[in-house]
Design a protein around this nucleic acid. Structure first.
Lengths: 133, 133
DNA sequence: TAACGTTTGTTATAATATAACATTTTATAA
DNA sequence: TTATAAAATGTTATATTATAACAAACGTTA
């Protein structure tokens, strides 16, 4: 069986590469700007790559910021349980990897008995740097 | 002291009213459509009201849907701990009120020691109705 | 090699949200 | 009461984010 990454198409590779190299979350149109030299011309080409990368778990969307960030779990193949820490001052975003938290949320049941397949959690506050300013 | 609700301005009241009467989350431009008879003409007037209503906790934004929903807690004055259940089929959204969950998340500490002021959690799955189809 | 699913390229447009500025209203407190 | 500060309004223009629709090419595999 071939490694997932190698199955990525040209555009998907280009987009993933940009997101992985970025220090923080990246906006779709900022990606578009960066790749216009590389043969990608239209928003849709970026959004299609993003959709695919999200689907296979290589990246996540930070919903409150309309931005995209690489998944920090090596070989992550799914993206159904995400948690982020977001600094409200500098906008630094970090994916939270915490098995207690994910275990708790994966097994969470509300009063309706609805069974959840997926969750996304975003925490907001001040990071160490910004707190001490 | 006067009740919070009575401090709302005309536009804020109009917008809140629409959201509270709606059966589910409402989009900003759908609100705009509804109120063009009532003297609100521009997107900004709606967004400003939305911002204020969010700030005082009367409504929440469902980030993954870019939509707004009334807070179900009577006299809720803050909006720093929200959790929603979202059906991926019918798009029904319900606010989850669960003190165990909120207690757990409010006291959550990640490895960086960052202290969180606010969180937003969105669960996705199929509601009872859609599951049985 | 044909058939299918996926990806691409392209143009156009929809949907969501904010900037900037002038004015009016409301609350506060001197 | 009045001045003054803070909040809200109205308006035009524009920025930002995202999808529709269609034709063509590519890649896999039966």
């Amino acid at each position: 069986m071939v490694h997932k990454l190698e199955n990525l198409s040209k555009n998907q590779q280009i987009v993933l590469n940009i997101i992985e190299k970025a220090k923080g979350p990246v906006k779709a149109y900022s990606i578009l700007n960066d790749v216009q030299k590389k043969g990608i011309n239209a928003p849709l080409q970026v959004y299609r790559a993003l959709d695919k990368l999200i689907k296979i778990g290589k990246i996540h969307k930070v919903e409150s910021r309309n931005a995209f960030i690489a998944c920090k779990n090596t070989n992550c193949e799914v993206s159904n349980a995400t948690a982020f820490s977001i600094c409200q001052a500098c906008e630094k975003v970090t994916e939270i990897v915490n098995s207690k938290l994910s275990k708790y949320l994966k097994s969470f049941q509300d009063s309706t008995g609805m069974k959840y397949k997926k969750y996304n959690l975003e925490f907001f506050g001040l990071c160490q740097k910004c707190k001490s300013k």
